[in-house]
Design a binder for these strands. Structure first.
Length: 236
DNA sequence: TGTCAGCAGGCTTGCCACGT
DNA sequence: ACGTGGCAAGCCTGCTGACA
């Protein structure tokens, strides 16, 4: 059981400002606030499972979440990472389909839950909000297309380099500006890249030998961003 | 409260197999 | 030949419970 805590108010929520709910009218914010509920989640806890019926929208107030699918061999493929201000489960809510992926906490989190009818009413009544959701879905579609091409055409080395750069952007860095602020295990990094854990570890060691990164236990420090960009085969 | 042993899970490396 | 994945074994680290 999660311990009781003071649920963040929507009108004072810093994460909401940077989310799709950022520009809502006061009356809509009030409605959200009255109808939402929320909870503290510990690392590893699951928000929803692939194949379940969506009953509401998850809004990340604090912490980090992964969405993933499990393939026939039981191997996990991480599809997306979400942080403060991101929302989860909207595409299934809008389409009326079952969840196409599962979501689990990778860094202790506070998650608000907005019931399905509240979200759909907002979509119906607020054109600006609807347009925001359309833009978000379009962006998701483009990301998925990019990912398919990436998995099909890039080597594991390129994908790992790109993933490290993505993690730098997603989680930021510590005070030194170089060490990735991520609590992901080697296995989880491999599940983003779409390769085996051993291959990921081998390539990380290779990157270290080549002077792209430094490894301090689990921590990864990007020491030569230019070389990493080159390894990822992408423009800065 | 601090220390220590035991344990589990994660990390790393070597070796081998397989496909291109 | 090269890139990649899988398995196995050893090492490392963090957590937990027992004990002084």
């Amino acid at each position: 059981m999660n311990k009781k805590f003071e649920l963040p108010l929507c009108d004072q929520c810093h994460s909401r400002i940077h989310s799709v709910f950022g520009d809502l009218k006061d009356s809509d914010v009030k409605s959200l606030n009255e109808n939402k509920c929320g909870n503290i989640y510990k690392k590893g806890q699951v928000l929803f499972y692939e194949g379940n019926k969506p009953t509401g929208l998850f809004c990340v107030n604090k912490g980090k979440i992964k969405t993933y699918r499990i393939n026939a061999d039981g191997k996990e493929q991480i599809i997306r990472l979400a942080k403060e201000g991101d929302v989860l489960g909207y595409s299934s809510l809008i389409s009326g389909d079952l969840y196409s992926s599962s979501a689990a906490v990778i860094e202790d989190a506070i998650i608000c839950y907005i019931p399905r009818n509240v979200f759909l009413n907002l979509l119906d009544s607020n054109t600006t909000f609807s347009m925001k959701m359309i833009r978000l879905l379009s962006h998701d579609l483009k990301s998925s297309e990019d990912r398919v091409v990436n998995l099909a055409q890039n080597t594991v080395r390129e994908r790992l380099a790109e993933t490290l750069l993505m993690l730098e952007e997603f989680g930021g860095t510590e005070n030194d500006g170089k060490t990735l602020r991520t609590s992901l295990s080697r296995e989880e990094i491999a599940n983003i890249v779409g390769t085996a854990t051993e291959t990921t570890i081998r390539l990380l060691s290779e990157f270290r030998s080549d002077g792209l990164i430094e490894l301090e236990g689990k921590r990864i420090k990007i020491v030569n961003r230019g070389l990493l960009l080159k390894a990822a085969n992408v423009e800065d």
